[in-house]
């Protein structure tokens, strides 16, 4: 059975396990929806008090918010195994069990759990997307939809890469790894405001370092049919999400180095 088919089997297995506790799964989803929806309150309160910023109204900011949250919710749904890698695998020794199976460790971890409750964030972000579409309004033609899907795919790859980096860190320290939240939750927070309100060094970081802007801001400009206020060329906007896949590739290289270290320390 090839890797993709096996991943599918893992995913089905995880879903069936959760289906045994439908009420709990539903409640966790609702809780996650409520907990993640509070960020839009903050965005709204600021726009409500100060008015438009950087040439953007609340409605347009809501599109940025929706796009990055939809992206992150899907990544979060798919990468639970990497997120809990330090605490649930390295510290408990369960990672040894993974290594005793004749498959790539990264594949087994990716398949560890597909966590349905993470769709809570997706639900609230999708509601915000609908709201944004009315407020702006956004013309959802085929090109816009395709751009959005492509951006989300690139973003899932990017966040997946970040979570793999977080897991890789656990090879060095099994202690709390909230540092990775800088890039995941912190990244979500940064990307839910339009890029041009930030200082220049920070914009560069979000474009070339951890290319969050490439998977949210630039494609969102393409969806809104707006030129970049900072002057990025128009042809670049829809293809920018490819940076997410590049980031994922680099993360997998780091993961390999971590695996080699684990084999020599066994910590």
């Amino acid at each position: 059975m090839n890797a993709l088919a096996l991943y599918g089997r893992y995913a089905m297995t995880s879903l069936r396990a959760q289906a045994q506790y439908p009420a709990a799964t539903l409640m966790l989803t609702a809780g996650h929806c409520a907990a993640t929806a509070i960020e839009i309150l903050g965005v709204f309160a600021l726009f409500d008090r100060f008015g438009p910023v950087g040439g953007w109204t609340f409605g347009e900011a809501a599109l940025f918010y929706a796009l990055v949250n939809i992206t992150f919710s899907l990544a979060d749904l798919l990468t639970r195994g990497f997120e809990v890698f330090g605490t649930d695998f390295v510290r408990t020794g369960a990672f040894d069990r993974v290594l005793l199976r004749p498959r790539a460790a990264a594949l087994q971890l990716a398949g560890h759990e597909v966590r349905l409750s993470r769709l809570g964030r997706f639900v609230q972000a999708f509601a915000v997307l609908v709201l944004a579409s009315h407020l702006v309004p956004i013309d959802w033609d085929a090109a816009a939809v395709a751009t959005a899907l492509w951006a989300v795919a690139g973003g899932v790859a990017l966040f997946g890469g970040i979570l793999i980096l977080q897991a890789t860190l656990a090879f060095w320290t099994v202690e709390s790894l909230e540092i990775a939240h800088v890039l995941t939750y912190g990244g979500v927070q940064a990307a839910q405001y339009p890029l041009n309100i930030y200082a220049a060094w920070f914009r560069r970081l979000l474009t070339f370092g951890v290319p969050l802007a490439c998977v949210t801001y630039y494609p969102a400009l393409a969806i809104l049919n707006r030129p970049d206020p900072l002057g990025a060329p128009g042809w670049l906007l829809p293809i920018a999400p490819v940076a997410g896949f590049a980031f994922l590739g680099l993360s997998l290289l780091a993961w390999r180095a971590g695996m080699a270290r684990y084999a020599s320390t066994g910590s």
Binding site: G54, V182, G186, Q189, I197
Partner: peptide, 19 residues
């Protein structure tokens, strides 16, 4: 790690306020 995280969040919040 907590310190680094908090620096980042601080910078982020401040940039948003400043804008």
């Amino acid at each position: 790690a907590g310190f680094a995280t908090q620096c980042w969040w601080g910078v982020l919040r401040i940039m948003i306020f400043a804008a």
